[in-house]
């Protein structure tokens, strides 16, 4: 898919409201974590962010929703500097599914309904989000903290999906999933992209990226489509 379906151009992305991060620098504890990192996440398109472990993928994604601020560099969402968007609005527009899923107390339904005002755990929207995240069947009433790691990862995706974000950032979404569930989630992400959401996957799994992403990029913004050999993950 990477080669066959080129994503929309960057200028289209900015016009229609994707994420654009340019020249991000960030150091913590005397270590430079981001050195001129770039990222474009156009809408209606799946972008894979490919970089080795420890390269700063999670850090970059956390900068986009302002869980961190870079020391230098600019990030825009729909052309608007994230520094000028109130954080809670920014996080409504840009969903982030963290690398380590954390469940809130209660059921899967409670978890997915967590951020929705006036919507109960049995609501249709909640059920649809749970299903779209690859949990097909009677999951809403299961206790969230009793689920397996892979199941929790999908609940975390459902929790973000249900908020109808413009852009969805997923940090290693397939790390805890088996092949079959990964395919299910991948198909969901493709469908979301076709509905117009911008999807970004920070990911080690290059074959997965090849199947489901429209574009693959490195942390410096360069094309990773041809990088199968030297960027295949060690882990």
């Amino acid at each position: 898919m990477l080669a066959a379906v080129p994503g929309p151009s960057i200028s289209t992305a900015l016009a229609t409201g994707g994420v654009s991060a340019t020249d991000l620098w960030l150091s913590r504890g005397g270590r430079e974590i981001l050195r001129g990192a770039r990222l474009e996440v156009p809408r209606a398109c799946v972008t894979a962010l490919i970089a080795p472990s420890g390269a700063g993928k999670s850090t970059l994604l956390r900068c986009v929703t302002r869980l961190l601020d870079p020391d230098r560099g600019t990030i825009t969402v729909g052309g608007q500097d994230v520094q000028t968007i109130p954080p809670r609005e920014l996080r409504r527009r840009v969903g982030l599914v963290a690398q380590r899923a954390t469940m809130f107390p209660g059921t899967v339904g409670d978890n997915v309904a967590y951020a929705l005002e006036g919507v109960g755990p049995a609501h249709d929207r909640v059920r649809q989000a749970i299903e779209a995240a690859g949990l097909v069947g009677d999951w809403a009433s299961r206790a969230a903290d009793e689920l397996s790691g892979g199941e929790q990862a999908r609940v975390a995706i459902a929790r973000a999906l249900v908020r109808d974000p413009e852009v969805l950032l997923l940090d290693e979404p397939t790390a805890a999933l088996d092949h079959e569930t990964g395919e299910l989630v991948g198909a969901t992400l493709r469908r979301l992209a076709e509905d117009g959401i911008g999807i970004c996957l920070a990911i080690h799994d290059l074959p997965f990226a090849r199947r489901f992403a429209d574009r693959a990029v490195h942390l410096d913004g360069s094309d990773a489509t041809e990088a199968g050999r030297d960027e295949a993950p060690a882990a």
Partner: peptide, 13 residues
């Protein structure tokens, strides 16, 4: 921190 950031990411103050 993970749980706090998960809540913040879902729009909590």
């Amino acid at each position: 921190q993970d749980a706090i950031e998960a809540r913040l990411s879902l729009g909590d103050d």
